[in-house]
Amino acid sequence: MEKFFTDPAAIEELEKMGDVETLAIPITLEALRKECTENAGLKALLDDMQERAFRYAKAVIETQLSLRRGDLERESGSRDDLRTLDAVQRRAHDAYIDSVKILARNLDKHGKDTKWFDELCPDPNRSHDQYRPYFARFGLIIAYREVLREIKSTNRS
């Protein structure tokens, strides 16, 4: 499992966490949409990134639910189940990170703003793999904000 779920310093910060709408992220989905709006290729890459962020969020939630239900501790073969869930979450995370990197690379090629990516991975000498929690935070916040937007829009209609 990702270490941030058990790190006491991280838990303390999360307890102080405010509204998901106000949490700091390098760029919003709306701002990214503006960057991509006039280019079908960029728009497709952004849609792909959003879809992968959602899949990653689903995998994280599925893992959390299974761990909390206690199924993994009680049932036989629990270690295999835990490994499977961890592998699914990791694959979803990898695919999502790749989609962010591909989008940033293509935005750069088209002369669009990519300062947000430098904020996500501030030290070019460090591997992107070392920024996994940063990518995770960015993707989950994007997914949760989008979900809230959809719920609000459904409730209005």
Binding site: A9, A10, L23, A57, Y144
Partner: peptide
Amino acid sequence: SPQEIINLVARLTIPSSN
């Protein structure tokens, strides 16, 4: 509210920025 529920989920799943 949906907002409060998603905020709770965020606290349970979003990693620290540290």
